[in-house]
Design a protein around this nucleic acid. Structure first.
Lengths: 112, 112
DNA sequence: CCTTCGTGCAAGTAGTTGTTTGCACATCGT
DNA sequence: ACGATGTGCAAACAACTACTTGCACGAAGG
């Protein structure tokens, strides 16, 4: 994964609202920005803005259904971010080393 | 790990200069800001600023040695960030599920 | 139809981030 | 003691971020 791609993934995750959106989509399944904005102390547009940041990071994807736009979590980039951290931490932490050996040499992400 | 703490960790990692600094400290061992700035296209103060962001995230720590300040990588927070991502991704990706079962039920971070 | 509802776009604003420059202070070696 | 070197602090700046409001467009449904 390119450096730029890691940038946007980590930056996207560096905001609690955005982590909350991802967590919610993972937990409850696909949903619209308007619906999710109802439970948050901000406008729909602000939520859309966050979702766009997540989309740029590849953490969510959209499907149009009539006049609605459904967002769903796509967690592939997480594996790449995890891989970076394991690389950085592996010399320090024996436990992470064990995990890393399981990650290496596989296709980085695969869904469903 | 608190939400705020995750914020600063992910935000700190969301910059290629900062990831590079962490990687360098992990690879080459402790070093001073002045020394690391020599190899980067920015001033010492900019590097110090980045290192302070990393320190706030708990990703580096400092030791004073005479007039020098040595920065070293402290990768504990990585494990917590990894844990969040595994939690988010576990329902999606079978491979991540396997990893998660190894992380659960342990002290979140432990060095050396 | 025509009203309602979800979406998209644009402009504006307040706060944060990345970086520089300049200077003061502490420490090391000679 | 003194010059060279490493560090710390603060002001200044441009660029970016996280929002808001307002409005236009398009689809659903009586």
């Amino acid at each position: 994964m390119s450096d730029d791609a890691l940038d946007v993934v980590f930056t996207a995750l560096g905001d609690p609202t955005r982590r909350g959106l991802v967590a919610r989509l993972v937990r409850d399944g696909p949903n619209t920005a308007t619906e999710m904005a109802r439970d948050l102390p901000m406008t729909r547009q602000a939520v859309v803005h966050h979702l766009q940041a997540l989309a740029e990071a590849g953490l969510v994807a959209t499907t149009r259904d009539g006049r609605e736009v459904l967002y769903r979590a796509t967690t592939e980039p997480l594996a790449d971010a995890v891989a970076w951290m394991l690389d950085a931490g592996v010399r320090w932490d024996r436990r992470l080393e064990r995990l890393r050996s399981q990650v290496e040499g596989r296709p980085v992400s695969r869904r469903r």
